[in-house]
Amino acid sequence: MKFTDSPVIELSVIDTRLSIQQDNGSMHVGTSVWPCSLVLVKFAERWHPLKCAAGDNPYADLLNFTNKRGVELGAGCGVASMGLYLLGLHDIVVTDIAPVMPALKHNLKRNKPALKKALKTTQLYWGNEEQLKSLKPPFDFVIATDVVYLEETVAPLIKAMEVLMADDGVVLLGYQLRSPEAHKLFWEMCVDVFEVEKIPHEHLHPEYAYEEADVYVFRKKKKEQNS
Results as ranks from 00 to 15, higher is better:
residue 201 H to Y: 10
residue 173 L to F: 14
residue 209 A to N: 14
residue 170 V to Y: 15
residue 185 L to D: 12
residue 205 H to F: 07
residue 211 E to V: 04
residue 208 Y to W: 15
residue 182 A to N: 03
residue 208 Y to N: 03
residue 208 Y to F: 12
residue 182 A to K: 04
residue 189 M to H: 10
residue 194 F to G: 04
residue 192 D to Q: 09
residue 172 L to I: 13
residue 180 P to F: 06
residue 175 Y to S: 02
residue 185 L to K: 12
residue 175 Y to L: 02
residue 217 V to S: 07
residue 198 K to C: 03
residue 175 Y to T: 02
residue 200 P to Y: 14
residue 197 E to V: 13
residue 180 P to D: 08
residue 176 Q to L: 03
residue 191 V to Y: 06
residue 176 Q to K: 06
residue 169 G to L: 08
residue 172 L to Q: 12
residue 222 K to E: 15
residue 205 H to R: 05
residue 202 E to I: 14
residue 176 Q to E: 11
residue 196 V to T: 05
residue 216 Y to P: 05
residue 192 D to E: 15
residue 219 R to V: 01
residue 172 L to K: 12
residue 215 V to E: 12
residue 187 W to G: 00
residue 186 F to L: 03
residue 197 E to Y: 15
residue 170 V to E: 14
residue 184 K to H: 11
residue 191 V to C: 08
residue 210 Y to A: 00
residue 221 K to W: 12
residue 215 V to C: 05
residue 208 Y to L: 03
residue 199 I to P: 06
residue 195 E to L: 08
residue 186 F to H: 03
residue 189 M to E: 15
residue 191 V to Q: 12
residue 207 E to P: 01
residue 181 E to A: 02
residue 216 Y to I: 06
residue 194 F to A: 01
residue 218 F to A: 01
residue 217 V to R: 14
residue 201 H to W: 13
residue 218 F to I: 07
residue 209 A to C: 08
residue 209 A to H: 12
residue 188 E to Y: 09
residue 173 L to T: 09
residue 214 D to H: 08
residue 179 S to H: 13
residue 220 K to Y: 14
residue 195 E to G: 00
residue 217 V to N: 09
residue 188 E to C: 00
residue 210 Y to W: 15
residue 170 V to N: 12
residue 196 V to Y: 05
residue 193 V to L: 09
residue 169 G to A: 03
residue 187 W to C: 01
residue 215 V to H: 10
residue 205 H to T: 04
residue 207 E to T: 07
residue 218 F to C: 05
residue 199 I to H: 09
residue 193 V to W: 15
residue 209 A to S: 13
residue 174 G to M: 12
residue 189 M to Q: 14
residue 181 E to V: 09
residue 177 L to I: 15
residue 169 G to H: 08
residue 176 Q to V: 04
residue 186 F to P: 01
residue 221 K to E: 10
residue 200 P to Q: 14
residue 195 E to W: 14
residue 208 Y to A: 00
residue 177 L to Q: 15
residue 214 D to S: 07
residue 181 E to P: 01
residue 212 E to W: 06
residue 203 H to Q: 14
residue 207 E to A: 06
residue 211 E to P: 02
residue 186 F to A: 02
